[in-house]
């Protein structure tokens, strides 16, 4: 019984997602809403402002480099958490 209710909930979620997806524009062109002014700016002035021909690198390391700093800090935090879970417990066990 519990399993059937779960299955129905997942089917309902999938149904809602599919109904919304079918209302999205199918073939994306330059007029699509996600292709907006900031991207035109990046594509037209990216090379002269940053000097990088790969626009993805230009956005990653110049326009949004503060984001990338946050990302490296996420990785740093993950490894600090890993070491504090797996290594610190060791020394306390040896003492106690």
């Amino acid at each position: 019984m519990k399993k059937i209710i779960r299955l129905l909930l997942f089917a309902g979620l999938l149904g809602v997602l599919v109904i919304n997806i079918m209302n999205m524009p199918a073939i994306l062109s330059v007029d699509a809403p996600s292709y907006n002014d900031s991207i035109d700016h990046y594509l037209e002035h990216g090379v002269e402002e940053t000097g990088a021909t790969s626009i993805i690198s230009a956005i990653l390391a110049d326009y949004r480099s503060f984001d990338t700093l946050g990302e490296t800090i996420v990785l740093f935090t993950a490894i600090i958490a890993l070491l504090s879970v797996l290594k610190v417990g060791d020394s306390t066990r040896k003492e106690g």
Partner: peptide
């Protein structure tokens, strides 16, 4: 080229 991007 590209200034600081290769360094980053």
């Amino acid at each position: 080229s590209a200034g600081m991007i290769p360094l980053l």
